[in-house]
Write a protein that binds this DNA or RNA. Structure first.
Lengths: 108, 108
DNA sequence: AACATTACTTGTATTTTGCAAGTAATATTA
DNA sequence: TAATATTACTTGCAAAATACAAGTAATGTT
């Protein structure tokens, strides 16, 4: 939701270094829980797109608060620190902007 | 943090039904992570008190957002629903009140 | 002195995870 | 068009985490 990652390969190659079987399992769980929907990629037949549902997008306020918390209590990246600063400055506006953006890409 | 539970026995008897060894393990992890401190109970020598640190109390905003999310997307208790309503109504005031309360009991 | 609470620890079976390897479907290249 | 490459998985197995049952040590109560 924060890095515009949307395919199995995107998730696999991200920093978390998750195992292939665990990733497949998690994607299925998230789909069953109504947090993501799986669709064919419009430009590449080998790929699938995993899009967040409104239920997932609605977690944004909680996630933003966790970023603010991390900024206070953990060592995080410069990029995350800057983002935390913005959230503290104008939380409501960031929630509105990001929700609208995520909704727009999930409707494509 | 929401139910005033503060001893090993309190946690053990709560709804989650955690195993004794897992609970002991979790309490140690939380203590090592600086989220709780362990102290002797002032009135009962067999008991220990586990108190949240400021680091834990600072998670309150994120936790409250999760309660609001749950109210929208999951089936929760009447009590939790009423709490969610209050949070939506006056979030800042609830954070201030609860933080102050948790800080006061953690300083006893 | 015996029994009860409380907060654990220990042993073992079950479940989950992590790693390496393999497979099926589509896309690209020679 | 045949061979190779991508992508999204699945499968098998070892290692780690969890759940359950039972036991122990320190303090408190009768």
């Amino acid at each position: 939701m924060f890095d515009n990652k949307s395919t199995y390969g995107d998730f696999l190659r991200s920093d978390e270094n998750i195992a292939t079987n665990i990733l497949a399992d998690r994607l299925l769980m998230l789909e069953c829980a109504g947090m993501i929907v799986k669709e064919r990629h419009p430009e590449n037949g080998t790929k699938f797109l995993y899009k967040p549902t409104q239920k997932a997008i609605d977690l944004l306020p909680a996630l933003l608060e966790l970023i603010v918390w991390s900024d206070k209590h953990e060592r995080i990246s410069v990029r995350a620190r800057e983002f935390a600063r913005q959230i503290r400055k104008d939380r409501e506006s960031i929630i509105r902007q990001m929700s609208a953006y995520l909704k727009s890409i999930s409707e494509k």
